[in-house]
């Protein structure tokens, strides 16, 4: 039974849909966790300590990395097959068909921007946190405890260039999700004419909530850096 997941187009899209859904759920979790940092830096660091180098956090990290890799490998595989099916001879004149979203035709490109942001992000945080703990270090390169996530956030988003890079990254995720969320329902067959407008609305709302939820932390910490008295906590 299982091999249709690799060998058939619809099966491959099932993998894409399920791995995408898993990543969406992770984003919602990550976003909620971040928002704690706005209200209480101590609470945020408690979460960081809780998700350090203990077995459950490591298992979750491995599963998450697996999800990202499956999604990425299938993304490249599907896109290569699709390009081959399109053929070497392209149309001289192309148009934007009515009602077709730009995102839907550029998911791989957007995905690559997301990967670049992810690599930078892993360096900025994971490298200085969970990895240091795994290596048995009690401080990271900045001299902070590996569970002191707030100090990393505070230092990073005091720099306008990182604020901009992160906001661009979140924008790429926004574009990915405006198509991705409804598409994942379509790929498993849960969609019809009545539900398309609703699913597309849900996609836009989800993408926007996720964008704002991540962006607000960047903005708040940037404001705090230039005006410490502006935000309490």
């Amino acid at each position: 039974m299982g091999n249709f997941l690799c060998s058939s187009s619809v099966g491959r899209k099932l993998i894409m849909s399920l791995s995408g859904c898993f990543l969406v759920l992770f984003l919602i979790f990550h976003m909620s966790m971040n928002i704690a940092a706005i209200f209480s830096e101590d609470a945020y660091n408690m979460i960081c300590a809780f998700l350090g180098a203990n077995w459950y956090a490591l298992v979750a990290t491995v599963i998450l990395a697996g999800g990202v890799i499956v999604h990425l490998v299938y993304a490249v595989l599907l896109t290569l097959q699709n390009r081959k099916a399109r053929g070497a001879q392209r149309y001289a004149v192309t148009v934007k068909e009515e009602g077709v979203a730009w995102s839907s035709k550029n998911m791989l490109l957007i995905g690559f921007i997301v990967v670049l942001g992810l690599l930078l992000h892993l360096y900025n945080f994971w490298y200085h946190m969970q990895l240091q703990e795994l290596l048995g270090n009690h401080t990271n390169d900045f001299g902070y405890s590996p569970a002191d996530g707030v100090s990393l956030i505070r230092d990073l988003f005091a720099q306008p260039v990182f604020c901009v890079i992160y906001l661009v990254w979140f924008a790429a995720i926004w574009f990915h999700l405006t198509h991705g969320v409804w598409s994942m329902f379509q790929s498993v067959g849960f969609a019809n004419a009545t539900w398309y407008p609703r699913l597309k609305l849900i996609s836009n709302i989800m993408a926007t909530i996720i964008f704002l939820g991540f962006a607000v932390v960047v903005v708040v910490f940037y404001i705090k850096s230039i005006c410490p008295a502006c935000c309490v906590a």
Binding site: S7, S9, N82, K84, R86, G99, V100, S187
Partner: peptide, 22 residues
């Protein structure tokens, strides 16, 4: 039908909806 479609070298569906539009 899906097996035959894949075998003949047609691509995967990205749900763009361009087909429906045209």
């Amino acid at each position: 039908m899906v097996a035959k479609m894949d075998e003949l070298g047609f691509g995967n569906c990205s749900n763009t909806g361009a087909c429906e539009a045209e």
